[in-house]
Amino acid sequence: MKYLNTFKGTFLRVFAEIKRYYLNTLSSFTIMTIIFYFIVMGINKFGNPATLGDSIQGLAVGYIVWMALVGTMTDLSWTIINDMSIGLIEQSFISPIGPTLIYLFYQFSNFVFVIPLEFLIMIIVFKIAGLSIIVPPIFLISLLLLMIQGYGIGLILAGITLRFKRTQSILSLIQFAIVGVLMGNFDGIWKFLVPANGFIDILGKIINGIGTSVYDWFYMLTSAAIYMIVGVIVFDYFANVVRKRGEIAQY
């Protein structure tokens, strides 16, 4: 029960922050949509969609994946940076629940609020791309699994932020690095290890009506679970490192 209460606390915190700074949320939403609109306009005007994908459709899926990953991977690190600078982080460490679970719950709370927004942007992006806005439920489930993978990576990055403090430049770079990762096509073990690699392929297949295989589901579930478990372990590890170094509060 106490864990549910902790989740409620982080959920209400996220809600209060979004409500209080709704303009920030709204502008992020608008910018994300406008960027895609201009990309599509550019491709239509100068024609060569091959530079970013095989088609506008591929581009739309890639854009949704990119957007889902950028937010999920970097959001917790920004929160940690904020909590370190305003001094909130120590109170999470003093709680008997512990910082790993508190920040994991914070991630899930964020997830609850980000999902509807993410889907809304997806509908607009698909509309701009001229795709059907009625997507099969398995597309949404796959997207959710991708976001869970992103949150796992987010915990790893947050752990690194906890230890090395000023990681803003890395976090900014990551949004561009993801583009590179999304454009690559890896096989074998790398398909599991490189974030989001297999997801693009699977989401593309779903949109094209090909559907998914058992192997696809195995990939998505294991890859999301592995990243989440590794994320928790790494975050917990760095939480102990900063305790040993006496550097929780230093920023």
Binding site: K2, N5, T6, K8, G9, R13, Q91, S95, P96, I97
Partner: peptide, 15 residues
């Protein structure tokens, strides 16, 4: 109020 509520919840206290 939100501060008291948040820090109460993250220690696992009930509504």
């Amino acid at each position: 109020y939100e501060n008291l509520r948040y820090f109460g919840y993250i220690r696992g206290f009930s509504d």
